[in-house]
Design a protein around this nucleic acid. Structure first.
Lengths: 187, 187
DNA sequence: GTAATTATTTATCTTATGTTAAAGGAATAC
DNA sequence: GTATTCCTTTAACATAAGATAAATAATTAC
């Protein structure tokens, strides 16, 4: 649990009582490579924190598997389009490397917001930061060629290319696996 | 000011005192078409609400003007990559139709969060919803052809095509103006 | 350790979108 | 109200990325 509280400190340090309240609604999950942590169609009622391992959010478009995002150690995963709307998610979370994960019950977490404004503030800040990342990502997509996008990924997140099958990287970059392979050949 | 409080009600109704506190740190701005409401390089310290008019956030990539997003009546505008990080924004806000805007001082607003948890909650919810929209937009971009993106816009936000110059729409869709014109010709 | 499966690359052909240039329409300034 | 500027379309050509198929390479199951 400690890794999680260390992570929280970067956003909003919590009192011991608040940490304890979060610990009480959280559990630790060990899950194997290639397993789905959460399936498509399930309403998101859990916020995950990766202690160890790699994961991705993916969905299907016209039967094709598309990766929305990758997640590594020390990050929060949530399918926000479901978490914040209460609607079933069209997306799944899949584990790409054997993982250790902390699962926080979001229904109970949102209740804690009333008792602990510091917890509400913490998650406000966490999701504000995630929002900024997502806005920046759109900028990275608009008007950049596939090759530019690949090179940007190589610079900014080389771990993605080292730890994740390329077929998943291709759809993340918005191109086919064949195109990605061609681009990689260009050097 | 009333339009703003009506808008807030959809997210989190406020007490009279909280409304008053927000009114005190807000002002009304009238601004003409084609003017920049906020220039590039300026650190975002204001959250805007459009009462009347149209606006866009834009930036330059390799000297080319790119539209990030459009905003219409009854919506909140903020350059979140600056607002939530305190860094200068590489983006500007431009008015596309003579506008009436409510400007909320964000430095003072964030201070109100300590006194009025209901205000913190309100803006948490507003930005959570904006975050969800942004995530959904990425899904709309990945693996859709320019023509699919154009048709989706035509269905989901025809007002964009009716009220905004096409040259701005093109970069929003991630294509050139010439390509957009060609796609429009296909019917 | 071998067979079977899955992932990646390479090749060929096709198509959508970019680029540049020019013409026609619409909006704006004075 | 006219001239000027800006916006949009059209055309011709170039190029990046998609589709399909087949060959290697790497993993996984047993």
């Amino acid at each position: 649990m400690d890794a999680l509280f260390q992570y929280f400190k970067k956003f909003n340090p919590l009192s011991k009582e608040a940490e304890k309240a979060i610990a009480e609604i959280s559990s630790i999950v060990a899950i194997k490579k290639n397993k789905d942590l959460q399936p498509i169609g399930h309403t998101c009622k859990t916020i995950y924190f990766i202690k160890k391992g790699v994961a991705r959010i993916y969905y299907f478009k016209d039967g094709i598997d598309i990766t929305e995002r990758f997640f590594f150690e020390n990050s929060i995963i949530a399918r926000v389009e479901s978490l914040f709307t209460g609607k079933p998610s069209r997306k799944a979370i899949q584990i790409l490397e054997d993982a250790e994960i902390i699962a926080i019950n979001s229904t109970q977490l949102f209740k804690l917001y009333d008792t602990y404004p510091e917890i509400e503030r913490l998650f406000r800040k966490i999701f504000e930061a995630a929002y900024v990342e997502t806005v920046n990502r759109i900028e990275g997509i608009q008007f950049h060629s596939a090759e530019e996008r690949y090179n940007a990924l190589l610079n900014e997140a080389p771990n993605v290319l080292m730890r994740v099958p390329l077929k998943y990287v291709a759809s993340y970059l918005g191109i086919t696996q064949v195109s990605l392979s061609r681009i990689r050949g260009h050097r």
